[in-house]
Simulated assay, not measured.
Amino acid sequence: MARMIFVNLPTKDLAASDAFYAGLGFEKNTDFSNEVATAWMITETIWVMVLSEEFYSSFLRNGDKATYGAGPREVLNAISGETREEVDEFARLALAHGGTIYREAAEEFPGMYSVAFLDPDGHEWEVGWMDMEATPGA
């Protein structure tokens, strides 16, 4: 079996998060979803687990708390896009389903085109596409 990654994110509003991730085109797995958590498949090996704040907090120790929005960011969730146009489409879909643009789409490094957006709870996502022929050292 291939190794998998499960990005676990707290939410204050599970319904808003569900609308956002469905709007991005991710596939909901109803076998692992209930009233406190929903499972969204990005690929067969990459999933987003959106957990109510209370349920998310049950996994934390040492007085740690769920965080949202502006301020220090520990994680930038980044996924690849297949084309520049798909990067732009993710940005459009994020805006249309309750997200906000965090960093406008741009080619900040040669051959690397990306956009960053925030989900309704302020968790940052980046979608990037690389033109391997234009990337230094390719």
Results as ranks from 00 to 15, higher is better:
E124M: 09
D13K: 01
G128T: 14
W129G: 04
T38A: 13
R61H: 11
M4H: 13
F32P: 00
S17E: 06
E86T: 02
F32V: 03
D119S: 14
D88T: 10
K28M: 07
N29A: 03
Y68D: 04
A94R: 07
D121M: 01
K65R: 15
D119R: 13
P136V: 02
A78D: 05
W40F: 13
E133G: 07
D119L: 08
T83W: 08
N29Q: 03
T83H: 05
K28R: 15
A96N: 12
F90I: 01
E133Q: 12
T45M: 09
G128I: 07
I5Q: 14
D131H: 12
Y102V: 04
W47P: 15
G111M: 00
V115H: 01
D31P: 00
T67S: 01
T38Q: 08
M49N: 14
A22D: 14
E85S: 12
A134I: 10
P120G: 05
A15M: 09
R84M: 06
L95E: 11
R3Y: 15
D64A: 14
W125S: 02
E54A: 03
S52K: 08
E44Y: 04
A96W: 04
G137L: 04
F20L: 03
A22V: 11
S57I: 00
G69L: 06
G122D: 13
F20I: 03
V50S: 00
T83Y: 02
A96V: 08
D64V: 03
G81L: 05
F90A: 00
F32G: 05
T43I: 08
A105W: 06
I5T: 15
E124H: 03
L60F: 01
E107W: 12
D31G: 02
R3G: 02
A138S: 11
E35L: 05
A91T: 03
I101W: 11
W47E: 11
A2S: 15
A22E: 15
G137Q: 06
D121G: 04
S17F: 09
P10E: 09
Y21M: 07
E74M: 13
N77M: 14
S114L: 03
N8C: 13
E35G: 07
D31C: 00
N62L: 00
G122M: 10
I101A: 07
L51E: 12
E86N: 01
K28S: 06
L95V: 09
E107T: 12
E107G: 11
I46G: 12
S17W: 10
D18C: 09
D119T: 10
